[in-house]
């Protein structure tokens, strides 16, 4: 079953940057799709168009058989609730507890008054603890978010997105600010969510070794266009040079 269909989308920012130039692809339910490409190739923009943090300039995005390209207001918030997102810089609320951060994943379903009085039911708190258990840091629940290490913060961010019970999980270079060992452990949680919960994952990555290890399919972007689509193991030396430029050399992460 096709969960997401991206058809010929363009994105031009108000500054005039033409970030996406006619990108089209489909994602099947349960896939682990990885998007690779240099910085500035349009990877982040693409993810932000899919969950509609940005509105594409033209083209069409279909999510669960529904055209979401230009939806607005309440309908847009409904779409966002079904798509989780994890960021390179974790983007947690630094001064609040880990538990509160995780609960913010559910804001879309909570009333405005209830959420600003922070009157959370025991069931909701238990669910948040459960999400923390999945990423293995329930013991940090009452710590302040900014007291955690980078890898731990990213796991909290993953738990936050799990609170949305997402059909689709987007990850924008989730390990780019982490060291190699931590990178592998964080990627491992994405794999676990993909395999055990059956959540479809679209992930931007830099390191090919991680791509080969986790991706079920790969798309490569260059200057806003798709230049490669296929299986991770089919990316050979020649493709690598095409994607990353002649100067590039592959770096291993184990």
């Amino acid at each position: 079953m096709t969960i997401l269909k991206v058809d010929n989308i363009h994105k031009i920012y108000p500054s005039g940057t033409h970030a996406l130039k006619g990108v089209s692809f489909e994602v099947k339910d349960g896939e682990f799709l990885v998007i690779i490409g240099l910085s500035g190739s349009g990877k982040s923009t693409l993810l932000r168009c899919i969950n509609r943090l940005h509105e594409p300039t033209s083209g069409e995005i279909t999510f669960l058989d529904k055209d979401i390209t230009h939806v607005k207001g309440k309908e847009l918030r409904g779409i966002k609730q079904q798509i989780g997102m994890v960021f390179q810089q974790f983007n947690l609320i630094k001064r609040r507890s880990v538990l509160t951060n995780v609960i913010t994943g559910r804001l879309g379903k909570l009333g405005t008054f209830q959420s600003i009085t922070e009157n959370f039911s025991p069931e909701l708190i238990e669910e948040a603890m459960n999400a923390l258990r999945i990423v293995g840091i329930e013991e940090k629940a009452y710590k302040r978010a900014d007291s955690l290490s980078g890898g731990q913060q990213q796991r909290v961010a993953i738990a936050r997105s799990l609170m949305q019970n997402p059909k689709l999980l987007l990850a924008d270079e989730p390990v780019a600010s982490l060291d190699p060992a931590t990178s592998n452990s964080v990627m491992h949680y994405f794999e676990k969510i993909n395999k055990e919960l059956g959540t479809t994952v679209i992930c931007n990555l830099h390191f090919l070794s991680l791509v080969r290890k986790y991706a079920s399919r790969v798309i490569a972007l260059k200057a806003g266009e798709i230049i490669y689509e296929g299986l991770p193991h089919d990316i050979d030396e020649k493709w690598f040079k095409t994607i990353y430029g002649e100067e590039a050399e592959e770096v291993e992460i184990r």
Partner: peptide, 19 residues
């Protein structure tokens, strides 16, 4: 960053401001 993240969960304007 946090604004983007909270907005991505489908929260409304007031919730985004508060959190």
């Amino acid at each position: 960053g946090p604004v983007e993240a909270i907005s991505a969960t489908g929260a409304n304007k007031i919730q985004i401001i508060w959190y």
